[in-house]
Design a binder for these strands. Sequence first.
DNA 1: CAAAATGTACTAACTAGTTCGTATGTCAAG
DNA 2: CTTGACATACGAACTAGTTAGTACATTTTG
Lengths: 212, 212
Amino acid sequence: MAERGENGRKNDPQQTKEDILLVATEEFSTHGLAGARVDAIAEKTRTSKRMIYYYFGSKEGLYLAVLEQSYRKIRSLESDLHLSNLEPEEALRTLISTTFDHDEANPDFVRLVSIENIHHAAHMLRSEAIRDLNVSVIETIAGILERGFDQGVFRRKADPIDIHMMISAFCFFRVSNRYTFGTIFRRNLSDGDTIERHRGMIADAVVSYLKS
Amino acid sequence: MAERGENGRKNDPQQTKEDILLVATEEFSTHGLAGARVDAIAEKTRTSKRMIYYYFGSKEGLYLAVLEQSYRKIRSLESDLHLSNLEPEEALRTLISTTFDHDEANPDFVRLVSIENIHHAAHMLRSEAIRDLNVSVIETIAGILERGFDQGVFRRKADPIDIHMMISAFCFFRVSNRYTFGTIFRRNLSDGDTIERHRGMIADAVVSYLKS
DNA sequence: CAAAATGTACTAACTAGTTCGTATGTCAAG
DNA sequence: CTTGACATACGAACTAGTTAGTACATTTTG
């Protein structure tokens, strides 16, 4: 068993890897892939640069691991919502609120996705893990839209991926562009009232779109 | 007068600066601030690295100049739309289409804004030029919303900045996140049909939101 | 002991920025 | 109009500092 000694080294590969990933997530998300410094990550870690290369091979390997872990975290949160018992409109509003809150609570993730887009999603393409995600959300939305249309609450037959994009766009933009937007319009998007208003806005917009 | 010789050097400061800016825009937008290489920019230019520092002082100075120029370009395009003669709904739809088409046509600009957000809009803050922009759009939207409400076409009293954000979010996201989104959902957002559908979608969504 | 895990110290390559020297344009005096 | 002096515009090669990645030795663990 690996116990923490006072000064003597104890091997704990799992903890070491997690520690590196945690620090790396922060570093990559605030500086970008090129701007992040391996030495800076190593320093903030309780281990050394040697271990980064031991476990992740290269700076890009570490970046990819960070990206994969971030996506994996979302998948687990998304699945247990049980929206099929709810009325279509209620289900949709719940899903939207969840997406909204997730993005608001995970600016690191949002920033990583922005960074990945700057790199044309090149790393994402190389990772099978990431590509296979998010499919479940589309199925969920598709189900809600179909039920809503059949019941006559939604008058419009919309494409689920389009609806997902509409929701994502708003929720994501609020976080990804909060600095430039906040600077230009002198408005703090992290403000409590603003958050509440926006959460309602996007839901109302999507629902009214489907009903029109 | 500075004539272009066959091989002999001719001084043309204006052209030199523009040349550098053009190349730098491309480089920064595809690699980010840290990822961009001054040497790479210099090579693609018809001049040398020396001139980059001669005219822009530093890598960051060049980046800021690129950013400022990009914003300046938009301002000029935005102003001459003459929306006050149109009916509120028509005016709003025209404005939305313009924003949509602008973002679609200027991925470099979109990417630069994304990059600037990764840097917490730090450079933008230092530039008075940029901060004072975009205010006119808000006034335009405010006017449309007011007229629409008075005429009874819009039932909802919405905040013009919120509406601007809603529009921007959708138009911007389509371009900024086209790579990750396209990879995950195997959908090409630059596809002609998709573009047409999305242009209509965002307009319908905003209008139906205001009417509900 | 063997394999896995870790630390220290190093290096080769890269990269922002500079030094030094040259060419070009301008404008005033002759 | 031509000369020359001064400021602006430019190029090639260099440098100092940084940074991703590694060689080698050591400790831990089973």
